[in-house]
Design a protein around this nucleic acid. Structure first.
Lengths: 204, 204
DNA sequence: AAAAAGTTTAACCATCTGGTTAAATTTAAC
DNA sequence: GTTAAATTTAACCAGATGGTTAAACTTTTT
């Protein structure tokens, strides 16, 4: 039957499911709420996705793949290391600005069901070895300070992601709950994180 | 009646509730599981704490107060700023080593119910202005690089907390899911985070 | 020993929730 | 226009869950 319409409904469901799941997590999400958000009824929802678990797995995989931006084009470019890292940080924070619920969602679900996480990582063939190798090479060349490259990688991720994951807390604690001010703060972090990191690791 | 026994049971309940709530969150926790963990029955659980909500609020407040270590003694000490920050980072990571579920729990619940968070912060009279002021003074003195003190504060928290909150993910991605290796990594971060931060901000 | 509080047992209730079903209706394909 | 798929409607089911209740038993207080 109508492929276009089918696709459309399926897409509507996936979008709705992502909206609700990423904001409320697996435990906090109700199938009825996804149906409402998609503008359809519960029966049709189960007609497309047999169970909540199946739907959740589809969403998690989709979202998880999003949090790994196209690193490869960066790694194999000819730019100097400081520029590479700078672009990475900018792109990553940009990604989170567009998807502010991703960090909390991933952290929540990753802790709830680590086994499923492992299967997703395996299935998606994610491999961070390349970037660690790149960092190590730059350390040997004397471009950046010698350290465990995993520390450096995790530091960059921490500085980029945590302010999003802890948004309500930081907003109250340091910005008098001023939503706009905190958003502006996050935008500027594209620059402040960059210089914080580079000041720490760049030699000469 | 027996105050000691009463206290003991109440304490058993609170401990059990903290164990379950911090690992599974409000949504994922079942009252029956708390009763089991405490070694009592559900009726007695409700006899002590009228509702799940009440019990949760008690636990959240208790846990939340724990994530703010005694900063005051540090701020008003005579140590130089690099030492102050170093001790803070060490103590904070130590705290998280002893309570590895705190970060995820706080992040999860803070995002689920920000209004309640605000009320807890107000009730506990938490005020980060002191530490921001201290940082600003050191910048003026030329001890550390000039920057938004909120950035510096949030950077330190990010570097300390995020590796705990993202534990299952980082463990798989960068440590082949080797639990022991990741734990050792976290222990060493007391030093690596310290030097990462100080290398970035310390002048001369 | 009597009274009071602590605790258990077990049944019970109302509600929510994921999921199913069947029949009716609409929409698109042929 | 017939057929098949897409969608709605509405009722239903089973299990889980937060919470209650009442009666019995135990422990501590007095």
């Amino acid at each position: 039957m109508n492929e276009a319409k089918k696709d459309n409904t399926e897409e509507k469901i996936l979008n709705a499911a992502q909206t609700v799941f990423t904001q409320k997590g697996m435990d906090g999400t109700r199938m009825q709420e996804i149906a409402d958000e998609a503008g359809i009824n519960k029966a049709l929802l189960h007609y497309y996705f047999r169970s909540k678990q199946k739907l959740f797995e589809a969403i998690f995989s989709k979202v998880f793949s999003q949090i790994f931006p196209d690193i490869k084009s960066l790694i194999y470019s000819e730019k100097p290391i400081d520029e590479k890292l700078g672009v990475f940080i900018e792109k990553y924070i940009d990604l989170l600005m567009r998807n502010p619920f991703l960090p909390t969602f991933i952290l929540k679900e990753v802790n709830r069901d680590p086994e499923f996480l492992a299967s997703v990582i395996k299935k998606q063939g994610i491999n961070p070895a390349d970037i660690l190798q790149l960092l190590e090479k730059e350390m040997e060349k004397g471009q950046i300070r010698k350290m465990d490259p995993r520390d450096l990688m995790i530091n960059i991720l921490s500085l980029s992601i945590f302010p999003f994951a802890s948004r309500p807390l930081m907003q109250i604690m340091f910005f008098s709950n001023d939503k706009k001010a905190y958003k502006e703060f996050l935008v500027q972090r594209k620059e402040t994180v960059k210089s914080f990191v580079l000041n720490s690791i760049l030699l000469k």
